[in-house]
Design a protein around this nucleic acid. Structure first.
Lengths: 226, 226
DNA sequence: AATGTGCAATTTGAATACAAAATGAGTACA
DNA sequence: TGTACTCATTTTGTATTCAAATTGCACATT
């Protein structure tokens, strides 16, 4: 009775959610390229399911903006244009600003401890030179700040935006020469939040995004030429 | 040849989109109440379609956060809590600020003309005492500003947020005594944008949302008690 | 050679069919 | 009287079937 009655529900996800995650990953990692058609029967065979969960997953991807629908022709992977990415970054910057501002006001003592740990973990991670590890540590640092902002809607929206930059952010973190600067920026953001210095936090966070923007746009241009 | 070759495509929307819009409207207008179950066969019969488009529409509503899924039990209309709405308004305020700021920098001459017309149309609309007309005029005014910001992602996100406040905003505009203040606030926003006065525009827009927030939260509380 | 036409193949859109799980009413039994 | 259990009903999850539209190609026509 007092026992844990919940099993890990993640293992019993409906097929549509499995398909959704699979396709999203494929798009974000670039395995499915912009413009590529997503044909239902083809995908169904490939993933070993019927068309129904494929269709439902496509509806979700459509609403996230990762695929576009052409009537009577089906779905294809959305094109990522420079304008498109600039728009995303512009909004992202604004929401990140809100996020650090709210974090300054609302962060708890536990979160402060966690943020310090995450900051230090990121510094350690850069020493590994393993991009996957570094990226995960970076995500963790920012996740704590977003959580500290205490706004579920904001969390959801930032995560959605982050998703659209996923592939390029990866490239950004690959560049070892940039790590030192990122560490310094994290330190500035961290210090500002700890001192509830809203102005400082906004400045530091803005600079942080601007640097990413430069890198992402450069990557994107390379990608388009390719 | 020189003729208009496009037919009104809206009339040939896939059923899933028709169902999606129908259900969304029903939820936002309060016809489908929070907690109410959305049973597929029932909805299918009611709308005269099969389960397939119903399911696809539910997937979209789920991603918009208007319904929540309970495994093996189906969808139900999401609860609107005060915290939830405050979160939405907090983000909305931030994005509106970005929107007026960008509009100050990017608005074209044509858009300036349109904005003036929309401002005056709203003033005229308040005289009709017809809430539908007033709401439409208000939307038009704000739409022009958002368009002038020239950021498609921002447009999409603000529209999504606006949707979640739909029902309460309607109540806000019903209150005739508030019209004069709204007109004054529109005038301030308009003037600031015309003079590319970013500071002024931010202040005016912030005040505008704050007033709405007060009204919406009050409405929401009444709604919950009901 | 260029353009138009018709037909077959492919693919989406929608409906229906089938399988599995959850719910709830009714009944047996302590 | 109350509790547990069975079984029919309901509902979701998934697969399959059917209809309609689009596309591309072959062929005819100018």
């Amino acid at each position: 009775m007092g026992q844990d009655m919940y099993v890990n529900m993640d293992e019993f996800l409906p097929l549509r959610d499995v398909v959704f995650k699979t396709l999203r990953q494929a798009i974000l990692k670039g395995e499915l390229k912009p413009g590529e058609r997503l044909m239902e029967i083809h995908l169904a065979n490939k993933l070993g399911v019927s068309r129904t969960p494929i269709r439902e997953a496509i509806r979700m991807l459509e609403l996230e903006g990762l695929v576009i629908m052409i009537p009577r022709r089906g779905a294809e992977v959305a094109q990522i244009t420079e304008k498109n990415m600039k728009d995303v970054l512009e909004v992202r910057k604004s929401l990140d600003a809100l996020s650090v501002q709210l974090a300054c006001e609302r962060i708890t003592e536990e979160e402060k401890v966690a943020l310090k740990a995450a900051k230090e973990a990121f510094e350690k991670a850069t020493e590994t030179k393993d991009v996957t590890v570094i990226a995960a540590a970076d995500v963790k640092f920012h996740d704590i700040i977003i959580e500290a902002a205490g706004n579920a809607k904001l969390t959801q929206m930032i995560n959605n935006l982050a998703e659209q930059m996923y592939r390029y952010r990866f490239e950004y973190l690959k560049d070892v020469s940039g790590h030192e600067r990122i560490i310094k920026e994290h330190q500035e953001i961290y210090d500002s939040i700890m001192n509830a210095d809203v102005e400082g936090a906004l400045a530091a966070s803005g600079k942080h995004i601007d640097n990413q923007e430069t890198s992402i746009i450069r990557q994107l241009k390379l990608d388009i030429v390719r």
